[in-house]
């Protein structure tokens, strides 16, 4: 029988330490595990490096972690919807590394797929190319973009079985499946946990082998 990966909320806190890098699923907070974000916040975790699409808004997604000063660096494609991120960046309190969204997705995928990097045309001739190696393939110029990994990935899924097979809901999928590949510890917050065998194997979006812990979302 496969391992039962469900843990209680009280087991989650000790999994996080100060100074870790955390990949978070979500696009403008949709697909971000709010309960896991709350744990990071409530236990006062410090000096986090956050990797994800965007910094949402001050009170949504991972926004509260930035507002409350838990974060030293973000690697994201967009900060425009969260004025706190911009303020802290200008004040020198937060390091912001902006990465084109498609490049971010591929760097994370590379980090989890055993690849040494990816060649992308995105960013050629812009500030994004600064300091990066280039390669010409069939006469076309590409940037060499390097893999990204994190200590922990925090994911949000609609449904899991006890082994950790995941199914996402609509556009809440976004970065979650690729982040499941690219972190040493993968924790998924899910709305529903079902017995092993209840999810059709054809419907599994992230295989259980990638998921270390699952925790049942608290009802809103």
């Amino acid at each position: 029988m496969a391992l039962d990966k469900q843990v209680d909320w009280s087991d989650v806190g000790p999994l996080f330490r100060d100074g870790i890098s955390v990949m978070f699923g979500g696009f403008m907070g949709v697909g971000t595990p709010d309960g896991l974000v709350s744990v990071l916040r409530e236990q006062g975790t410090k000096n986090l490096t956050l990797i994800g699409n965007d910094t949402a808004a001050p009170e949504t997604g991972i926004g509260p972690l930035i507002s409350d000063g838990h974060v030293k660096k973000v690697i994201v494609s967009h900060i425009g919807t969260n004025p706190v991120t911009g303020k802290k960046m200008i004040a020198g309190e937060l390091d912001v590394d902006l990465v084109p969204q498609g490049t971010l997705a591929e760097r994370i995928r590379c980090g989890g797929a055993g690849l040494g990097g990816v060649l992308t045309p995105t960013g050629v001739g812009t500030v994004v190319e600064e300091g990066k190696a280039k390669m010409v393939v069939d006469g076309k110029t590409f940037l060499v973009e390097l893999p990204l990994r994190a200590d922990v990935a925090i994911l949000k899924a609609k449904r899991a079985d006890r082994a950790g097979n995941l199914v996402y809901e609509r556009a809440a999928r976004n970065f979650n499946p690729i982040m499941a590949l690219a972190a040493d510890l993968v924790i998924a917050e899910v709305d529903e946990i079902v017995d092993i065998g209840e999810i059709d194997p054809d419907h599994v979006m992230t295989p259980a082998a990638l998921v270390d812990k699952i925790v049942l979302a608290r009802r809103q």
Binding site: G80, P100, P121, T122
Partner: peptide, 15 residues
Amino acid sequence: KMVPGMGGAMDLVTG
């Protein structure tokens, strides 16, 4: 003045 980040714009315009 305004540094929102490129989001998906660079990939879209490139691809």
